[in-house]
Design a protein around this nucleic acid. Structure first.
Lengths: 235, 235
DNA sequence: TTCAATTGGTGAAATATTGAGGAAAATAAA
DNA sequence: TTTATTTTCCTCAATATTTCACCAATTGAA
């Protein structure tokens, strides 16, 4: 019942306003000044609903929206300052998503949030994202609540970037993840330049999981993919 | 359980009307002729709910509302004479809970007040009553009724902040708690002011529980988590 | 085979985060 | 008021983490 909501808006006032309104309804609210911050946290710690301002420093709400959609179908409410954005959102025909045009009534937004959750409850009482805090691939387990990873039951001590990267690869273990996507997700927009930070992190991660049946194989000229020894990564 | 309600309205009739209706429900009512009087009293002696007329001598209800919002998120009900004010309330992103347009039904207002309190009770009861007033983690026990903590049966003398922090960590012992959440929940600032007060308190707390099987382990770059020696927090 | 682009390894420099101790400030008690 | 307690702030040191440079190894393509 403790629904967790993430809010990304660079305006402190709006964040706090929504926070106080939604907390009064019993929701648990985390605010983020940028969409990048929210996205990074969402990977390692998903929530039940997201409220995204369109205009933000860094990459805008639309970009974050599409990035999140690659890994989750969490309900998203967009906040937009201009009617033109609203048109754009309508054009996108985003399934379960909604939008509000500023200025908006916080009371109406609260109502919308409640109705979204009510609809989800009706469809399926199990929430896919937030309850799914355990990830597993081969002999590696990740507990997103405690932010800990284990290999064959033994604690893996990972740094924040390593942890996030591994989590992202495990979420997407069914496909190869391009390098730029990792940079986008974990390092954010400022990493436009040619950089090898992702490789560095993969390198360190590999050292820490040498004993595992799982391994991070490189897809040459593209990115990385989680594989097991059965997978015959040779291709 | 004796809820205290402050009412500011320059019209004696309205004040007395509301007073009699609400007192009949068991609430304790204080009336103020102006919002300034109410604000002054509220600072030294906060109440559980506020009813504010918009049009008053001195500073109007909107001003008082924003002032109160700076120091509290007590539920506030606005009374307005004109529909245009209602629009204003909805349009502006002010943190008001609700509003009534004059003339209004006192019975409906009483219903609203009750529902606001009921909602708050529901939220609070999750934390206080439902999960019992006794908390336990490893050899540490907390009795929330007596506000006391023991370690291996011996009394732990904790300061208020230490007690609150430890309690919060014990309630959430199943997960890592981010630093910002501690700051938000215990110190009350949402903004990411660069501050180390949480670390300071954790530091002092750790000294007091060195003998315990439980320890407060840091989740690097994130926050803290209660662990026992079995947990093998790695690191 | 040869070449250019890409990737991996080593290690060290640059950054960031946390912890310790104590001083100052705020708060509560006497 | 003074005194004691608690909280916050400050500085610096200790770690931990991230990034970078350099070069060797690998890969894919001509």
């Amino acid at each position: 019942m403790d629904k967790v909501i993430y809010i990304a808006d660079d305006d402190d006032n709006i964040r706090n306003l929504l926070k106080s309104f939604l907390e009064r309804e019993g929701y648990i609210i985390y605010g983020f000044p940028t969409g990048d911050d929210l996205l990074k946290e969402f990977i390692t710690n998903p929530c039940d609903l997201i409220i995204l301002d369109v205009m933000m420093p860094g990459r805008d709400g639309f970009f974050i929206l599409t990035e999140i959609r690659k890994i989750s179908n969490v309900p998203i409410i967009m906040l937009t300052a201009r009617d033109s954005d609203a048109d754009y959102i309508e054009g996108l025909n985003l399934g379960s998503d909604d939008y509000f045009t500023k200025p908006f009534s916080p009371i109406k937004l609260v109502t919308k949030v409640k109705s979204i959750f009510a609809r989800l409850e009706a469809v399926n009482s199990i929430n896919v994202d937030a309850s799914d805090s355990e990830l597993e691939f081969a002999d590696i387990k990740i507990n997103r609540k405690t932010k800990s990873a284990t290999l064959k039951g033994r604690e893996l001590s990972l740094t924040p970037n390593e942890y996030t990267l591994l989590t992202y690869l495990m979420i997407n273990s069914d496909r190869a993840v391009p390098r730029v996507e990792l940079l986008d997700k974990i390092w954010g927009y400022e990493t436009e330049i040619e950089t090898r930070v992702a490789d560095d992190t993969v390198k360190r991660l590999r050292k820490k999981i040498v004993d595992s049946d799982a391994k991070i194989s490189t897809v040459w000229g593209y990115g990385f993919r989680l594989t097991t020894s059965q997978d015959e990564p040779g291709e």
